[in-house]
Amino acid sequence: MASKQVLLLAVAAITVVSLVAQASAKDFMVGDSAGWTLNYPSGWTNGKNFTTGDSLVFTYAAGKHTVVEVTGAGFKDCDATGNAVLGSWSSGSDTVKLDKAGRRWFVCSVGNHCSQGMKLLVVTSGDSKASSASLNYNVGAGAAALVAGAAAALMF
């Protein structure tokens, strides 16, 4: 009986860890209430901590702006063409997952918007959320096995 209780406690603990890992990721509205526009505040990233698992949410008028992920050189030169482009979005409501640690550069490719300041550099840290996200996936499979095992043990 004690082993069944230990098994059930382990399943409960794994479930809690999984839920905490999922709840810790944040969505950041780029530009806050101003959105991704020509009035985008250049210091928007100040005081924000971006970690793997978080997402950037770009809201803007479709057709008037774009979101283009570029290389560091593309960012510096406001070049959103050719090999400088790593990804692009244009729906007006785009979510970009910060799935790895490091620098990510985004610009608007419309006209001279980038040179007018419509550009964003985000530095993402790979803190424990990355480990939690990975743990969450692996624990999910383990939890399923433990639940199946617990159910089988309870039947006997």
Rank of each mutant, 00 (worst) to 15 (best):
R103N: 15
V85K: 07
P41W: 08
T15D: 09
L7N: 10
G35P: 04
L38A: 13
V6N: 09
V139Y: 02
D79A: 15
D77M: 08
K64L: 13
A10T: 13
F156K: 04
T95V: 14
G53F: 01
D127I: 03
T51H: 02
V110I: 11
E69W: 10
M118Y: 00
L8I: 09
V11R: 09
K26Y: 00
F75E: 03
S55E: 14
K100Y: 13
G47A: 00
K26I: 02
S134W: 12
G74M: 08
N49G: 07
T51Y: 09
G31N: 12
S93H: 14
M29S: 10
W89P: 12
Y60E: 10
S42Q: 11
M155D: 03
N136M: 02
A80E: 03
L8Y: 09
V139P: 02
S93N: 14
V85M: 10
G126Q: 03
L38V: 04
S131R: 04
F75S: 11
S131Q: 04
N136V: 04
M1V: 13
I14Q: 00
M1W: 12
K119I: 01
V110S: 06
A101I: 04
A23V: 06
P41G: 05
S109T: 01
D32Q: 08
A145I: 15
A13D: 03
S91L: 06
R103Q: 14
S93P: 01
A143T: 11
V20S: 06
A150H: 10
F50I: 03
L8C: 14
G102W: 03
W105S: 03
F106N: 09
L146R: 08
V20K: 04
L56C: 14
L120K: 05
V11C: 14
T81K: 14
W44G: 04
V30E: 04
D127Q: 11
R104C: 05
L8D: 15
S109N: 15
S18W: 09
C78V: 12
Q22E: 15
F58E: 13
T45Y: 01
D27E: 15
S109Q: 11
L56V: 12
S88V: 02
I14D: 03
G35A: 06
A2W: 05
G140V: 05
D94E: 10
A148P: 01
V122D: 06
K76C: 04
D79Y: 08
S115C: 00
L86F: 07
C108F: 08
A145G: 10
V17M: 07
L38E: 11
N112C: 02
L154Y: 05
S125G: 15
S93Q: 15
N49K: 15
H113S: 12
G126V: 07
L98P: 00
D99Q: 01
S131M: 01
V6C: 04
Q22C: 08
T66L: 01
S88M: 08
A2S: 13
S88L: 05
A13G: 14
F50P: 00
K97I: 05
H65T: 07
V110C: 00
D54E: 01
T51K: 04
S125M: 10
A73Q: 14
Y137C: 00
A61N: 07
A153E: 13
V110K: 07
